[in-house]
Design a protein around this nucleic acid. Sequence first.
DNA 1: CTGGGGATGGGGCCC
DNA 2: CGGGCCCCATCCCCA
Length: 534
Amino acid sequence: MANCMVFHTQIASVMEVLANAAVAEICKLVGDDYAVFRLEIAQSQKENGALRRKLQQLELKVARERAEGTIRDRVLASRPSSVKIVDRYRGMARGEGHLTGGHKTFVKPVGHNTWSHGQPITVDEGTGTSTQNIIVIESADAEAADPGVKLERSEGEEDSRHNRDIQTAAVAGVLPVATEEPTTIPAQPRTQRRITEVSGTPIAVLKSETDTKTLIVTHRLLHTESDHRSDPERLGRMGSPPAPSSEYIPVFHQSERTVNSFGHGEGDMSDTGGDDPSCSYATEMDPGNMPLGLETQTDLSRGYWNQYSSSVYSEGCLDKKGEGLVVDVEGDAPPTWNADRLLGDGHSQGREFLDHKGSLETNPNVATHSPLHTFRDRNPVSTSMGLSDAHGHVLFNQVLNSNDQRAKARGGGETSGNTKEKRFLCMFCNQGFSCPQKVERHQRIHTGEKPFSCPQCEKRFSRQDHLKLHQKVHTGEKPYSCPQCHMRFTQAGNLKMHLKVHTGERPFACTHCGKRFSERRYLRIHQQKNHSTL
DNA sequence: CTGGGGATGGGGCCC
DNA sequence: CGGGCCCCATCCCCA
């Protein structure tokens, strides 16, 4: 018995020794692998950084070429005394022209989130160099906690954190030091200025000069506690004298909480409930706190103030005074009129910026030359199915030919931009509309006003027709039925998409690899994943 | 990657 | 001319 006990004790001790040895071996292996893994990660990060910087340079080069092309065109086409818009950056641009917004999520242009306040970015264009100071107008730590951001997030996650650090430092009155900025970009002599706050309203008059033009870019934050209007006097007295030889591109780092943060102090980066469903609606937003108006302005004293705004903006607007501009399409508008534009509302309607841009570009009077703009694919292969069956869905033809209609409606450039006069401009983003009602409807995007609530679920909507559509969810009404299967849909567009299941139609082809997709969104995802560096 | 469901913004039409 | 409504495109979410 005693021997047995001793034997067991010996066995136990041997087992312990073996176990320890095994643990040590495992630890060693893990440690080695971990070191290798970290090394690989570091290398990958380095490569990513290099690619990102390269992408930035390419984008800036393209943007600058575009802007300069615009300037040249406008110089030739306008009066000698006119001053032109250099460009405008409507808040966001998507990686490939697609600005997703996870229920209002902004996606920064790829790589742009690596820019920091005042960071010079030099673009070598062969003919010379130019320096662009990137100014972070507004930034908030919303992305990290926002589950809606998916795609482009990962690419600049580290940098976005860096940006947040910069913002925090800025709030604390510490001039940010860019420690992770691209070191391959040579520093250029420049004069750096900062946005100053005037009476709590961050406003900046930025002047940028190109070789041929002097331009003033006014960044304006609309604020309820201050005069919202574009006050020429105030603008005139703001800021220090503009720095020569510099060009500013406003960079918005936006999200829904960014919007909300306007009214809560710039330093409030804490999570104030981003996961709260109630926050997904803008009804509680203070309209005045929300919009970020950005003007590309040449001469405010010659601005044409909105003549209809007092009536149109009677609800959900800033101060009922309006500050949009009437576009004198027919008259002999001064060449500066379209420069008085509010750009980018700075809130969570990222998708809209590009959509608006598309519309704006149809307006020959509107200059929309975003340096970071990427164009959306508006030319899918047209379809013509012409289905007609017992359901009598004349809708089918309408639906299936909608691409062309849509292209016409949104304008296909100069050839189709004369649909209707868009005399009525949104006071927030200056998008033009043909009638005041449309402006009022549109401006609810910016104000967050949602007057129509569903009696069943209390969900609120900015438009009555949207509420009506929504109520079909409760009633179960599905008026659009597939002629080839049992599927029924509440919306015609859904039926249209569904029909492709039966036809196998894949009208969206990847220009890089030829792979075809049934919907544009799949193509976009595919290109983002596989051809994002092209 | 695909498809369904729902939301939302712009344009157009009708009354 | 204004309001209401519809159509359409496009987005996001989710499975």
